[in-house]
Structure formats: C-alpha cells, structure tokens
C-alpha cells in the first residue's frame, strides 16, 4: 500500500469490492489533485467503472479508505454522501443523462434548481455554461431533438453548472464518432481546467485518454499509477 501524494483532493487506498465470487476491486488505489485530468484505463471488466463509482460515493467499497478534501467518505452516512455528490461532484455518463421532457436549458439548470436556486438565476447560469460548450442555440430544444454530440455537450454543461470540484466522466464519448468525441473532449477539458476542477475520466479509448494529464491502469481490480511506475 502506497501513501498518496500530498495536496491530493481525492485519494483512495486499498479498495476492495466483491460481487459474489468476483473481485471487482482487489486493493485499488487512486489520487488526484485539483485541476488535474486523470484517465482510468483498462480492459472491459477490469474494475475501472467500479473504481469510479466508489470514488464518487455512488457505491460503497467492502473495505479501504476514500478521502475527499480531508474527510473519510466511507464513514459518511448515505445522506452526507448524497449532499457531497450534489454540491461538490459533477457527472457525465455515456448515455441517457438528460431528462427528455425538459428543454436543454432546463436540463442544465436542473442541479441548481434542486439545490434551491431560483428558476431565473439557474437558467442564467445554465446559459452561461451552454455558451462555453457552444450549445446555447439549443436552449429551447428537447434532448430528443439534438444530435448525440450536442446532447453530450449539454450534459457536460449540466455537470459543470454547480461549480463542482471533481468531475466524474464514465466513457463520456463512448456513443460518439471520433470527430464529435474529440469536440466534446476539447470543450470538456478546457472548461474543467478553467475552473480548476479535477476530472476522473474512465475510458478505454486512447485518443480520449490523450486529453488527460496522466493515466491509471486497472487490471483484475488492481490499479497502477503509470506516472509513478516509470
């Protein structure tokens, strides 16, 4: 077990998670600094999504430690973890993140509305992020009326609207062709870096990982920090 580097915003040590007889995580570790983009790579079934879900407080590990900003996440209550996810974390997934009944601007404004921000204020902030992601012209459209790449940029705007300190992205370009995927990654990483947010990026695509600062490889539930391995 190695000690995480100092100044890390989010660290995990010796994480273990078992589904039945399968060891999804078998002593995995992780560390990320503010403003850093770290790719989690590895073959299908290696445990990389499980690692992301544990780091994000979505899934409790069987054992191990996850420290966020000096607080042990594994000893928080469900309510505390939910509050943390809403206020400090942002999420971008591969599919189905937008609420189909809402317009794009309402979708982006949704996390702020849930936190009690007024509609006018939430939509003003939402539009600001939509401009950054170059999808402000879609504000009145519903998710079903926009392309996959546009929808993903709307989802990124929604992940950023609360000013999260950590963004979790699980195969964010997995459903897009390479041109649109790169456009999303360009805008996503630029926007995240401008706010000094840390990005935890799960991907099996090297071209997507090339937008990161460094990568962690997960194999058979164990992680390897390649920067420190060389």
């Amino acid at each position: 077990m190695t000690t995480p580097p100092t100044g890390s915003l989010l660290t995990a040590q010796d994480l273990r998670k078992t589904y039945g007889h399968t060891h999804a995580l078998d002593g995995a570790g992780f560390a990320i600094h503010p403003g850093e983009v770290v790719a989690i790579m590895g073959p299908s079934g290696s445990g990389k999504s499980t690692l992301l879900h544990c780091l994000a407080g979505i899934l409790p590990p069987d054992s191990g430690s996850i420290m966020y900003n000096g607080r042990e996440m594994t000893s928080m209550s469900d309510g505390e973890r939910s509050a943390l996810r809403r206020s400090e974390f942002g999420f971008v997934f591969q599919f189905g993140q937008l609420v189909p009944e809402l317009t794009c601007v309402e979708n982006v404004a949704l996390p702020l509305r849930l936190n009690g921000t007024s509609r006018k204020e939430a939509e003003r902030a939402a539009l600001g992020w939509m401009e950054r992601l170059e999808v402000d012209d879609l504000k009145g459209k519903r998710p079903g009326e926009v392309s996959g790449g546009q929808g993903q940029r709307v989802a990124v705007a929604r992940a950023l609207v609360t000013g999260p300190r950590v963004l979790f992205a699980d195969e964010p370009t997995g459903a897009l062709d390479s041109f649109n995927g790169e456009r999303v990654m360009d805008l996503f990483t630029d926007a995240a870096r401008s706010t000094n947010a840390a990005v935890v990026l799960v991907t099996h695509e090297a071209r997507v990982a090339s937008y990161s600062d460094r990568e962690i490889v997960v194999r058979d539930g164990r992680s390897r920090d390649m920067e420190r391995a060389i």
Binding site: E215, R224, M226, A229, I230
Partner: peptide, 8 residues
C-alpha cells in the same frame, strides 16, 4: 503497461 504509457 510501460509501452502504453509511453505511447500515451
């Protein structure tokens, strides 16, 4: 693994 890292 090391080669992947070098490529990346």
């Amino acid at each position: 693994d090391v080669q992947r890292s070098e490529h990346l």
